[in-house]
Simulated assay, not measured.
Amino acid sequence: MNKLLTTMIGLAVASVTAFHTTAAFAQEVTGNVENGQKKVAMCIGCHGIVGYQSSFPEVHKVPKISGQSAKYIAAALNAYKAGERKHPTMRGIADSLNDQDIADVSAYYAQHGKAANAPEVPAEPARKPSAQVDALLKKGACVSCHGTNFAKPIDPAYPHIAGQHADYLFVALKSYKQENNAKVGRTNGVMAGVAKQFSNAELKAMANYISSLDGDLKVVPQSEFRR
């Protein structure tokens, strides 16, 4: 069993590297924070409103993206653009952005809302999971990519997930289990392999725990109107 798990993790690392080829290309373009601030009008109507909910594919809060890794934001936008993430609204937005736009928007949100003297997220979660959730997290080898505290991933192309909205995490995890749906689903082979090991109830339990942890993700209120 241990040998099988080691093999799976090795294959996961190799597959994720391949998956992010498009994102790595985009990141060759240097993002400019000030320019990014001028390009987020299409983002703030959802991601800049505290408690804002999406109704597709089910009702859930839109993800916190302020404080997220720039490389991950770029990876996600490129995945929507390529159709690897199936979400009509996000694909439409991503299609409107060129590589420079994506780099600028990603750079802007990576630093957005960060205080100069903000404390570091603890290296170990302050809240321990239940025995059930602990077993699920170990089965999925979640910390091998997302870090022990789920806020310091081993590669900046992987998301910070500590403190992310639980309902969003649940919807995102379920999307990796979707197949043959033109509007819903994500085609990351690694995450699909992980998510399909679990029932939806188990995914929800993990999402609830990860959401409860301290992290550096935020929703920073922004005006929907710019001059």
Rank of each mutant, 00 (worst) to 15 (best):
residue 210 I to G: 15
residue 101 D to F: 15
residue 201 A to T: 15
residue 144 S to G: 07
residue 164 Q to G: 11
residue 37 Q to E: 12
residue 138 K to L: 04
residue 112 H to E: 10
residue 101 D to W: 13
residue 7 T to D: 13
residue 66 S to E: 11
residue 193 G to L: 13
residue 110 A to P: 01
residue 163 G to P: 12
residue 73 I to W: 00
residue 133 V to Y: 12
residue 121 V to N: 10
residue 99 D to M: 04
residue 138 K to Q: 12
residue 86 K to R: 07
residue 210 I to T: 14
residue 29 V to R: 03
residue 55 S to F: 02
residue 29 V to C: 00
residue 61 K to W: 03
residue 219 V to A: 12
residue 150 F to D: 02
residue 12 A to K: 14
residue 3 K to C: 06
residue 36 G to I: 11
residue 17 T to C: 04
residue 200 N to P: 06
residue 139 K to T: 13
residue 208 N to K: 11
residue 182 A to Q: 13
residue 132 Q to Y: 08
residue 125 P to N: 11
residue 104 D to W: 08
residue 196 K to G: 10
residue 218 K to W: 09
residue 204 K to T: 00
residue 129 P to V: 10
residue 181 N to H: 13
residue 223 S to C: 04
residue 86 K to T: 04
residue 135 A to M: 04
residue 74 A to F: 07
residue 211 S to T: 01
residue 179 E to V: 06
residue 51 G to V: 13
residue 192 A to R: 15
residue 164 Q to W: 03
residue 176 Y to G: 02
residue 78 N to L: 09
residue 151 A to F: 07
residue 135 A to W: 01
residue 64 K to Y: 09
residue 137 L to D: 04
residue 129 P to M: 12
residue 149 N to M: 02
residue 89 T to N: 00
residue 171 V to E: 07
residue 210 I to R: 14
residue 145 C to S: 10
residue 22 T to E: 09
residue 153 P to H: 08
residue 48 G to P: 05
residue 88 P to R: 07
residue 173 L to W: 07
residue 166 A to S: 13
residue 208 N to S: 14
residue 115 A to N: 00
residue 39 K to I: 08
residue 83 G to E: 09
residue 60 H to G: 08
residue 103 A to D: 05
residue 40 V to A: 03
residue 165 H to N: 15
residue 52 Y to D: 14
residue 108 Y to E: 03
residue 148 T to N: 04
residue 124 E to S: 08
residue 226 R to V: 12
residue 198 F to N: 05
residue 28 E to F: 02
residue 120 E to G: 10
residue 96 S to Y: 10
residue 205 A to C: 04
residue 4 L to Q: 13
residue 93 I to C: 06
residue 145 C to I: 06
residue 141 A to N: 04
residue 90 M to L: 13
residue 30 T to H: 03
residue 189 G to Y: 00
residue 149 N to D: 01
residue 183 K to T: 11
residue 26 A to Y: 05
residue 89 T to H: 03
residue 158 Y to I: 03
residue 177 K to G: 05
residue 1 M to C: 10
residue 61 K to S: 13
residue 20 H to R: 12
residue 72 Y to K: 14
residue 113 G to F: 02
residue 152 K to S: 01
residue 42 M to R: 00
residue 119 P to N: 09
residue 51 G to T: 13
residue 167 D to H: 09
residue 15 S to H: 05
residue 8 M to Q: 14
residue 163 G to L: 15
residue 54 S to A: 14
residue 221 P to E: 08
residue 18 A to E: 06
residue 119 P to F: 01
residue 224 E to C: 09
residue 69 S to W: 03
residue 108 Y to M: 07
residue 5 L to C: 04
residue 202 E to S: 06
residue 128 K to S: 14
residue 199 S to A: 01
